[in-house]
């Protein structure tokens, strides 16, 4: 078994199955169904790997299947942004 997304524990087989069973054509759809790239690393490791699997299976280009990126770029503490981290 090849692990693609380490944060959410998703394998290549999971991705191939989602593409075959649900007809996923974009990374956004894989995110919705599998939580691919939604873990602590923000998809830095897995999204490009998953994009390659999708491109291979659907014949689409990488550009067509990349999702939107959502801030913040790195995880930030709530207390730091909210301005009340006394400790």
């Amino acid at each position: 078994m090849k692990i693609v997304c380490r944060c959410e524990d998703i394998s290549e087989e999971d991705i191939v199955k989602a593409i075959d069973e649900y007809g996923c054509e974009t990374l956004a759809e894989l995110k919705q169904l599998l939580r691919l790239g939604m873990g602590h690393c923000q998809g830095r490791t897995c999204l490009i790997l998953a994009a390659k699997i999708l491109a291979r299976k659907t014949g689409k280009s990488i550009q067509e299947i990349m999702p939107s990126f959502r801030p913040p770029v790195v995880p930030v503490d709530i207390g730091l942004i909210g301005g009340e981290n006394e400790e």
Binding site: H40, R70, P71, D77, I78, G82
Partner: peptide
């Protein structure tokens, strides 16, 4: 938004101040 939300979350549930925000949309 993020600043306001973090501020209010910290009031509602103080222990969450040490938790990281991963994403906003």
């Amino acid at each position: 938004f993020l600043k306001h939300m973090a501020h209010m979350l910290g009031k509602y549930a103080p222990s969450l101040k040490h938790v990281s925000i991963l994403r906003q949309w």
